[in-house]
Design a protein around this nucleic acid. Structure first.
Lengths: 183, 183
DNA sequence: TATTTACGTCAGCCATATTGACATATTTCG
DNA sequence: CGAAATATGTCAATATGGCTGACGTAAATA
C-alpha cells in the first residue's frame, strides 16, 4: 500500500446524479483545480507544512518534548530576553497553554527566567547554552529542507517565495512579524 | 499590548558572557538571520500557516467541528470515492485518530460511505451536497488569502512560489502529491 | 484452504489547547 | 498616597486530536 490508488471517476458530468426516486446520492464529481485554482496552493501548503514540521519530531521524542516545546524554545532562542506576553502574541495561544510547556523547558534547564531589570513584574526568557544547542539541532533539518528548496530556484524565485509567504500572513500582523524576523 | 515590544539587545558580542565565578549565565546573544538565513523562511512558514489555518476556525466552531474535520472533509470533497487508506496516507495519522472524526462527519451527514463496487471490503468516501457546501465555505477564505497573495506577484513569481512549496514536500512524496493535486 | 488486506472498534493514554477564576507583585495614574 | 491597571502565575475543569495495542470481521487473493 505504498501507493495511493484513487480510482478514476466514472462520471464525466460536472453535476450530481439525482436518483430515480428523487433522493440525492453522494456527490461524485470532484472539485477540480479548474474550478478553484487556489486549491493547488492550499493543498501544497498543507503537504509542505506537514512534512516541514515532521522533521524535528524525531529529535524531540528523545527529550520527551513535543512540537509545542519546539516552538517555544525556537522563539526564545531567537529573541533572548523576550517577555512571556511577546511569546503568547507570537504563538497565539493562552498563557495557560504556554504555562506547562514553558515550565518543563525551565525545569529541564533549556530556558531561564530573569526578572526584568526595569520592570520587575516581567520574567524575561533566555535560552541556556543547552537550550541554544537543542534549538540549533531542531532547526538544522528544517534549514536543510528550506535550503534545498531555495537552491532549486533562481534569485528572483527565492524573493518571490519569501514574498508569497509574507503576504499569507494577516495584513495587520505583517509589520510586526517583519520586525521580529529581521533581527 | 497590541504591540510586541522586544527589547533591543545590549550585548554587542556574538558570544555568551561568562560571569566572574565561572558560572554560565543565560545566553543573551540572539540568533541572527546572518547566522542562519534559512530562519527567515522557517519563521515565515510558521506565521503564514498559523494565519492560514485560523481562517476556517471561525466557521468550524459553529458546526462543533475542529481542524481535523476540516482536513478530512476537504480531501474527501476533493477526491470523491477515495478509500479510507488513501485518506490516512494523505493525513499521515492513524486510523484510530481518523475514526472518530470521520464518524462524526458521517453521522452528521457531511460524508457518505459507499461499499466499493469492485472490492467490497472498501468503504469509499463521498461528500454529500451538504458536505460539499461546507467544504466550499471553508475553502473560500483560504482561497481569498491565497488569491490576494498571488495577485501581488508576477507570473514568474507565482510559479516560483508554487515550485518552492512543492520542493518543501518530502522528495519521496512529491510525485504522489503532484498526482493528487493535478486532478 | 490459508493468508492477507481493508476497515472498524474498544480501551487507555498523552499532548495541547481552551475558559474561567483567582493570587501576587509591581507599575502607573489620578 | 491610594486605586487601578499590568505582567505573570496557578488551579480546575474540559475539549480535541493524536497515539499504541489488541481484537474482530468480511472479503480478496495466493
Amino acid at each position: 500500500m505504498a501507493d495511493v490508488n484513487i480510482a478514476a471517476h466514472s462520471e464525466g458530468a460536472a453535476e450530481e446524479v439525482t436518483t430515480a426516486d428523487g433522493s440525492k446520492g453522494p456527490v461524485t464529481a470532484p472539485v477540480t483545480i479548474a474550478d478553484k485554482p487556489e486549491v493547488v496552493l492550499i493543498e501544497l501548503l498543507f503537504y509542505a507544512y506537514r512534512d516541514f514540521v515532521s522533521d524535528p519530531d524525531a529529535v524531540l521524542v528523545r527529550y520527551d518534548f513535543g512540537r509545542a516545546h519546539h516552538r517555544v524554545l525556537h522563539f526564545v532562542d531567537r529573541h533572548p530576553g523576550m517577555r512571556v506576553a511577546d511569546l503568547l502574541d507570537i504563538l497565539k495561544i493562552t498563557k495557560q497553554s504556554l504555562g506547562r510547556v514553558l515550565k518543563e523547558l525551565i525545569d529541564t534547564g533549556f530556558i531561564e527566567q530573569v526578572p526584568g531589570p526595569v520592570d520587575r513584574r516581567q520574567r524575561l526568557l533566555y535560552p541556556t547554552e543547552k537550550g541554544r544547542a537543542l534549538s540549533a539541532r531542531l532547526t538544522e533539518p528544517q534549514a536543510r529542507r528550506i535550503g534545498a528548496a531555495l537552491a532549486a530556484l533562481d534569485p528572483a524565485g527565492r524573493v518571490a517565495a519569501e514574498r508569497f509567504l509574507r503576504l499569507m500572513i494577516d495584513a495587520d500582523e505583517r509589520d510586526k512579524v517583519s520586525r521580529l524576523i529581521s533581527r
